[in-house]
Computed example of a mutant assay.
Amino acid sequence: MYTAEKPLWKNRLRASGKRARMPRRSLRCSTAITGFWRANMKLHDLHSALETRIPRAYACEWDNDGLMCTPDPDAEVRRVLCTLDVTDDALRYAAANGFDVVLSHHPLIFHKLGALTPDDHIAKKVLFAVQNGISVLSYHTRFDAMPGGMNDLLAGALCLMQTEPFGDGESDMGRIGLLPAEIDIYDFCAQIKRVLHADALLLAKAHDTAHRVAVLGGDGKDFIRGAIAAGADTYVSGRLSYNTMAEAAEMGITLVEAGHFYTENIICAYYLRLLAALGIPGACYDSNRIEIV
């Protein structure tokens, strides 16, 4: 049986009598996967399995990911909550619904913590996780860059063929490929919105059509030059910048900003498949807190 995992804000709004405005679900990955549970899978076993499948060698030097915190590396893993972001709502949901592991893309701890006190919002989340028996694992730029990872998933979702890596000089985490046929740029934008379930896009048009397309989930402004050098006529990313988009026509490349959340939340479906292969029940949590208003 498939059951929906709903964020706490909806229940709070319902209780208050206000009309709940639910964000769109990205790629419909807010359902639980049930199946055979592999008994005696410990946290350190899960960590080892993820480190093997998502190798640290692909991570950027400045990144901090992997095991973020655990109250007990020998604790048995019974249920895993997958999310793009480790928000306080996600952790409270995990604690209230029997999840002992939270598996995210964006690291819970990115910058060094000077102290573990409730005065800092990140440290407060770490303390809450540990106090509630929850381990947190995060896989960030290594998942972006690895073969079959974030940007291969994004390229596949947009139907790109003959894909190959491109980069910014530090990492070749971007992907570039060909659409099955040249397409009107507005039709391509409609396709992006439909596939990623994005509320809106920003378009800076340099060409009327799209064919050779570069993609990079999340914040991709540093890869624009790399996309141009790789021969892209169109570049799709989650977040670009005003200045670069304003100069898109002058640079000769169409830029499409599809939203950081929407271009990366595809990781949740990947995590569920990986967990199912390991025999671990999992579910996805919609961590998006940003609305178009």
Rank of each mutant, 00 (worst) to 15 (best):
K18Y: 12
R19Y: 11
R25V: 13
T34S: 13
W37R: 14
A39T: 13
N40T: 08
M41G: 03
M41K: 10
L46N: 10
R53H: 14
E61P: 00
N64P: 03
G66S: 06
L67I: 06
M68H: 06
C69F: 09
T70K: 05
D74V: 04
L81M: 05
C82K: 02
T83Y: 11
T83D: 07
Y93E: 02
S104L: 08
I109S: 07
L113E: 02
G114A: 01
G114E: 05
P118C: 02
A123I: 02
A129D: 03
V130P: 04
N132I: 07
Y139S: 05
Y139R: 06
H140Y: 06
R142H: 07
M146I: 15
G148E: 12
M150W: 08
A157F: 02
L158G: 04
M161W: 03
E164Q: 14
P165Y: 12
D172V: 06
M173V: 06
M173K: 12
I176G: 04
G177Y: 14
L178P: 01
L178Y: 15
E182H: 03
I183T: 15
D184Q: 12
D187W: 01
D187L: 12
C189R: 08
Q191N: 06
Q191S: 12
Q191I: 00
L196F: 04
A198Q: 08
L201G: 09
L202C: 11
A204H: 13
T209S: 15
H211K: 14
R212N: 04
L216D: 07
D219W: 09
F223S: 05
F223K: 04
I224R: 08
A230G: 08
G231R: 00
T234V: 07
M245S: 03
A246F: 05
E250I: 02
G252I: 09
G259L: 05
T263I: 01
T263H: 12
I267Y: 08
Y270D: 08
A277C: 10
C284I: 00
Y285V: 01
Y285T: 05
Y285C: 01
I290L: 09
I292L: 14
I292V: 13
